[in-house]
Structures are given as C-alpha cells and as structure tokens.
Amino acid sequence: MVRLITHNLLACHVKGCDSNNFPLTFSDAEVEIRETEYNAEFLKGFFPKLEWKALVDSARQLGDVSLPETPPIDYDSNEEFLRALHHVLLEIHVQEGSMICPNCKHVYRIQSGIPNMLLAEHEVAGR
C-alpha cells in the first residue's frame, strides 16, 4: 500500500543523484481507493512534515485535483480542507506500477503495494 503520505517521504538515492531527485514520478500506476478512519489531530500534526507542492503534483498525476496549490491559512481548522487532505494522503493506494526519478530516471518498482528502494551495489551512495 504505497500511499501518498509515504511517497512524499521518498527521494531518489542513486549515487550522485542529489538534486531534482524528488518527488518520484508515478508511471503505470494502478490505483485503489480504500476508505479509512478520519483523524484531524493526526493530519494537523503531520502537515508540517509534508512537502506541499510535491503532494499536490503527485495527487494530480494520480487523477486527484482536490488539493489547492497552496494550503489555506486556516489549514488546521478548515474541515473541508482536512477531509480532502485525509483522502489524498491516506485513501489513495498505488498497488502496482513504478516511481521514476525526475533527474536520473532510475525506476523504483512498486509490487503488491510495496515500493522497492534497493539499488544495485554500484548505484549506492556513500558506501
């Protein structure tokens, strides 16, 4: 279950690839929607950890346009906004497909909802 909340934390880590390496671009994504319980406190608490533009762009790639370009100033009390954020972060699951680095084009596969971020030995940085 790759959800956008996890995707928002992933960057390419191929050796030497350290700019324009985030967010990874979805390709051939098979999307599944699964409802889950809404928790406003969690959303407000997680919000500061998000890269907003990456989230909005990635949601759009998956066909969801419910998030605004910039978050509302009253983000922590705006329920309509928080509900949309809940859906985008937690209910959209990418089951199969891949994520491609916008810089070096490395392909990270997603299989049965689990991204594989392992690299071959020669691609690994800092070892």
Binding site: M1, V2, T6, A11, N116, M117, L118, L119
Partner: peptide, 18 residues
C-alpha cells in the same frame, strides 16, 4: 493498524525527507 512498508536497506530513499 495501517502499517506501510518499504523494501530498502535501513532508511535509504527516506534519508533526504526525514
């Protein structure tokens, strides 16, 4: 509990964002 999982060594791929 909706746990999420990644196949990776340690935290590779997460380092930059966490």
């Amino acid at each position: 509990v909706s746990t999420s999982a990644l196949v990776t060594s340690l935290y590779e791929g997460l380092e930059q964002r966490i």
